[in-house]
Design a protein around this nucleic acid. Structure first.
Lengths: 157, 157
DNA sequence: TCAGATTGCTAGTTAAACTAGCAATACCTC
DNA sequence: GAGGTATTGCTAGTTTAACTAGCAATCTGA
């Protein structure tokens, strides 16, 4: 997480500590997701696709196979197979795109939502109760930091 | 990231916003790592193993194949293959464990350190300069939050 | 209008995980 | 100590999920 750069001042130590912690959180998140292999009959990519669908649904934005391919950084061919798995397991459906004859719209089934929250519910609740301990001003700082960081890491998002 | 839970108060909205942001950061991190597929001749697991080695080295803690298997949540058989790849590409070496005849100690080559920082350097600098913008008190709050969150997500770490 | 781009798919290939089981070594109980 | 059990890292063979190449259908812009 560092470079040959070594923190000197107290402030630099604090910076280093935050970057180390963010890495730890990110690793924990990754393990949590890839750990779904065991908890449900799904691999990490399938879960990631499901998460994208859940998030986009909350934003009332539709998701195409192309979107999934871009988000997961996999080929459209792999995405077709991924969707085949999710369709076959009854988690999503392919619908024709309303205006683009080539495209598809991928939608969650109610079953998928249930499974997702059954598996992630405890973890989400635990995370939420951690955040609940912080006041508005603190949360504002944290959110601003995270958004800045995100922008620095990955311009497109 | 949410559940059927919907934020009501301002505070709950702030909580939600932070959890959404942390997800975004985590996704960006994951894409950054899996994006290494393109930037170097390595897959995400190999990079993750390399990161573990870099971090542990800084803590002066040795790393066994077993440690890597546990950290990446893959089998020891897969870890053997992973190490074969990294040894063959000249990024790590297997050394005998000093006190346990069964075990090995995996150590980085100088070459691996160079490659790692060449690829991640820009990103790490960008992240660091984001954190630099925050004062000690803010960084302390952020670090505490992240550590709390980590504890909530993944007790063992 | 039509040349080029984009979408999602199939087919076949490759990479990296998996399970099962092995010998060598360590640890624990008597 | 001696013997049984656990742990480590490995090999062999299998399965999964990514990849590339190329297709028809559709959209877009000059």
């Amino acid at each position: 997480m560092s470079e040959r750069w070594l923190p000197q001042t107290n402030h630099e130590h604090a910076v280093m500590r935050v970057l180390t912690s963010i890495r730890a959180v990110s690793d924990a998140m990754e393990r949590m997701h890839s750990g779904m292999k065991g908890d449900m009959d799904m691999n990490a990519s399938d879960v990631a696709a499901l998460r994208l669908l859940i998030i986009r649904e909350r934003q009332a934005r539709s998701v195409s196979p192309r979107d999934i391919a871009r988000h997961l950084r996999i080929s459209t061919a792999s995405t077709t197979k991924l969707l085949d798995r999710l369709v076959e397991s009854g988690h999503v459906e392919r619908r024709p795109h309303p205006s683009d004859g080539r495209g598809r719209v991928v939608v969650l089934t109610e079953d998928a939502r249930n499974v997702f929250f059954r598996v992630f519910g405890d973890r989400l609740r635990a995370m939420r109760s951690v955040a609940m301990e912080y006041d508005d001003a603190e949360l504002a700082v944290i959110a601003r930091f995270l958004d800045d960081l995100c922008g620095a890491m990955d311009p497109e998002g």
